[in-house]
Design a protein around this nucleic acid. Structure first.
Lengths: 212, 212
DNA sequence: GTCTATAGAAGGATAGAC
DNA sequence: GTCTATCCTTCTATAGAC
């Protein structure tokens, strides 16, 4: 539980096939069921190895979980958002950006990692930080920088770009997202997503567009 | 696990002292640690009763959890939001409303229940529904109805009031909320909250205020 | 490195005394 | 109704054979 740094962590950069099997099975199970509900037995079974092999690669359940979820945070953090440079159709750019971000947030993978990190952030504080810094926080930084460019170019009103970025994301993250997180209804349709994005862009532009 | 409805559930409307002790202890533990991480032993110990007594009141761990968290959803769902009637200082009303909603969302209790319901919604689907219907969904309905009144009175542009309500809440739920959920930093200061609310109201009004 | 087998602790749930 | 004591299962982790 102390998560000491002395033990060998497997080199996930160059995994053996078994390491890959273990990592994939364990990640899938942890994301679906959370930390406490998944046993090392279940992981070993799902990975097709024995528990002894599992423990040969990962010193403990704690470290296995922290390592895998941390890695998952990094992987999902690298969502490539493309920010148009130079002269820009602002509405089009925001729509494309919003569409990409919202679809990403609604992916089962994203929802699962969000759920599990939130649930375990108290027990694994470094996961909360990793998730934020590599995920939402990183997106915020990049979006804020891009919005600041647009502000300096006079295409948006000069406001706090960080706050503007958060507001844009907030406008995207309507109850569509919450309901998906809660597993209340089937995945939203393309039409619902497009409606939400268009409305977010519309509101954002009405608030941030310079007076014509 | 099947959560059948045949078993006696304790009457939580008129609880004995022991029922109260059990309910309080178990709710606190479940909210802090999640379903799987809390043992019936731990609950019995925290409540000052034996496990047998625990099982005299609740047929299983499943039912104990579902009953308590469902109750907690109902309790927190009844956040009294006051909606000003008649002629209204719209900015003032929205600011007051936003302040109240954001502070409520940032309360440790609210964050804890949000986390645990998200984490367990797959195993306890009725909890996801209860949480939404009695919490965010109910607020949305009431806020949407109030916004619709304002729209009909000509104080706001006529738009989809449900979407407008979600956007207002989305503007409030910035990274302040996410960081609090992830336990990343200490509770936000009054100043941070007020800034966030003021910015949300400003953006919302710029988008929804009729042309002067 | 990988397995089978198992130790030792903790889990949910119950029997039986009072 | 409440307790103590216990059953059986499952858990994490490891020893020892190959």
């Amino acid at each position: 539980m102390a998560m000491s740094e002395t033990q060998t962590s497997p080199d996930l950069a160059d995994p053996t096939p078994k390491q890959r099997d273990i990592a994939e099975a364990a990640t899938r199970l942890f994301m679906a069921q959370g930390y406490a509900a998944v046993s090392m037995d279940a992981i070993a079974r799902a990975a097709g190895v024995s528990k002894a092999t599992l423990y040969a690669y990962f010193a403990s359940k704690d470290r296995l979980f922290a390592s895998l979820i941390g890695t998952a945070c990094t992987r999902t953090g690298t969502t490539s958002l493309e920010f148009s440079e130079g002269e820009v159709d602002l509405r089009g750019a925001l729509t494309q950006l919003g569409d990409r971000m919202l679809r990403f947030m609604l992916e089962p993978q994203s929802l699962a990692i969000y759920r599990v990190v939130m649930a375990e952030a108290a027990r694994f504080p470094e996961l909360g930080r990793a998730f934020y810094d590599r995920g939402a926080g990183a997106s915020r930084r990049r979006l804020a920088a891009w919005l600041e460019q647009q502000m300096q170019a006079g295409r948006l009103l000069a406001r706090d770009p960080g706050l503007a970025a958060e507001q844009f994301v907030g406008l995207l993250r309507t109850h569509l997202h919450m309901r998906a997180l809660l597993g209340i209804d089937p995945p939203p349709s393309d039409a619902e997503i497009e409606t939400t994005v268009a409305a977010a862009v519309e509101t954002f532009l009405r608030a941030y567009a310079p007076a014509a």
